[in-house]
């Protein structure tokens, strides 16, 4: 990735992508559906990316990548095909094509960078928006929980899936490198805090990702051939989490959140952590 993307200040999408591309190397093509990343490349005839980027319609990224991967493999090329899609293009409109591509065993890496709403259109709710978060289409706070896309992916039993966060670049870098060593579909879900969308000041992007992990709201793990390994940072958080409020309070989108909703979030968080701990402990 070159300098001068047209990303917002403090954007963790571009931050994460920088490490993704570093890890993937030059023999890589990105397939990008409508999302913030379609905007930050710049305007034709310029591009801030130094790998080929194929932009495709919102719900079509995984299918497009499926065709591309097959075409490269037919030609004997090992070129990495990486979908880089937002939460809307993954959890919502793109889920059918993604499910199909995973079911067919497509040789590609699907990365969902998750800023928990439709960011480049001004923060409308998505399936990735957490309970209680205000967006332009949930002005009183979202009344439904975040869709568990990782569980949906796990149900497809891919060789490799992981979660990551833009705030932990080394962890992300390693996971991308590892994902690309597998034949077949792999998935990385990156938490990508968004200053204008989550309503915090731009310099706090990295801190926000760390607070998410430290509070247990975001858990870093890998699942390799079905075997779960929870990351060291999340292990720490599971033993000694910081208060949930430390994560919620700095974000304008949770301003004025009902204490009952916070309690539900806390319970769901605990349930998720114990579920993951149990899965990891299972023989």
């Amino acid at each position: 990735m070159l300098k001068c993307t047209s990303a917002c200040a403090g954007c963790s999408d571009s931050l994460a992508l920088r490490y993704v591309l570093k890890a993937a190397g030059p023999d890589t093509v990105l397939v990008v559906p409508a999302c913030c990343t379609s905007v930050i490349q710049g305007i034709y005839p310029n591009t801030a990316f130094n790998v080929p980027v194929y932009n495709i319609a919102f719900g079509a990224a995984a299918a497009c990548a499926s065709g591309m991967s097959n075409a490269f493999r037919a030609a004997g090329k090992k070129t990495n095909v990486i979908v880089y899609a937002g939460d809307g293009g993954t959890l919502d409109i793109g889920i059918q094509a993604m499910s199909g591509a995973f079911e067919r065993g497509t040789d590609f890496l699907y990365i969902c960078y998750d800023n928990e709403a439709y960011g480049n259109t001004g923060m409308q709710r998505s399936g990735g928006t957490p309970l209680g978060a205000k967006t332009t289409t949930t002005p009183a706070g979202k009344t439904e929980a975040k869709k568990d896309i990782d569980a949906i992916i796990a149900a497809h039993d891919p060789p490799y899936q992981a979660t990551a966060a833009a705030a932990y670049p080394q962890d992300l870098f390693k996971k991308v490198q590892k994902a690309l060593t597998f034949r077949g579909p792999s998935f990385i879900h990156i938490l990508a805090p968004c200053p204008p969308g989550w309503r915090y000041s731009t310099e706090k992007t990295v801190e926000m990702g760390k607070l998410a992990v430290k509070s247990g709201m975001w858990v870093l793990y890998e699942r390799e051939y079905g075997k779960l390994t929870i990351g060291a940072q999340s292990k720490v958080a599971m033993k000694k989490p910081i208060p949930l409020e430390d994560y919620l309070a700095p974000q304008g989108r949770f301003k004025g959140i009902d204490p009952k909703t916070v309690e539900i979030i806390r319970q769901r968080l605990a349930k998720n952590l114990s579920k993951l701990a149990a899965e990891e402990a299972a023989p």
Binding site: A60, C64, A71, Q96, A97, R104
Partner: peptide, 26 residues
């Protein structure tokens, strides 16, 4: 040929697009 049994027609055309741009026949 490689036959991709896609899960919808939207994906059929998307897959043809992704394949075609690599310079092959679809």
């Amino acid at each position: 040929s490689r036959y991709i049994p896609v899960e919808s027609e939207h994906s059929a055309m998307a897959a043809c697009i992704g394949a075609s741009i690599t310079g092959i026949r679809t």
